[in-house]
């Protein structure tokens, strides 16, 4: 009989999942930093890749650290977050899009 733990399932002694998550988050951060310092691509291209790296970073945090898939029933929290992400994309994308008509400097 294995020892009962807080999550009732057999828990590993080494927090492998957490270590992998930490390593991935560091790699993603330094990849973004290295790309920013390298000055090898155009501004738009660099920003695009850096944003993709940031989105991957979110996935790492949600999956490896925040136990995103856990729930005691239907996963309503995922619906809530999805709506928020949709709003945020509309707000940020919409603001930038609308303001480019009004500003020479942007």
């Amino acid at each position: 009989m294995s020892q009962p733990t807080m999550n009732g399932n057999k828990a590993p002694h080494v927090p492998m999942k957490n270590l992998v998550g930490f390593l991935l988050s560091l790699i993603l951060t330094f990849a973004a930093l290295g790309l920013g310092l390298a000055h090898v691509m155009s501004f738009g291209m660099v920003m695009f890749i850096i944003l993709i790296l940031a989105v991957l970073q979110i996935v790492v945090q949600l999956y490896f650290f925040m136990h995103f898939t856990e729930s005691d029933g239907p996963r309503y929290h995922i619906i809530g977050l999805a709506i928020a992400v949709f709003f945020v994309i509309c707000i940020i994308g919409g603001s930038i899009w609308a303001m480019t008509f009004n500003s020479q400097a942007l």
Binding site: T29, A32, H39, F43, V46, L51, L53, I58
Partner: peptide, 14 residues
């Protein structure tokens, strides 16, 4: 992470 990317790194790259 987004502040790091959007604020600081954007400043460095631009």
């Amino acid at each position: 992470v987004f502040i790091f990317s959007v604020v600081y790194l954007t400043g460095v790259v631009s």
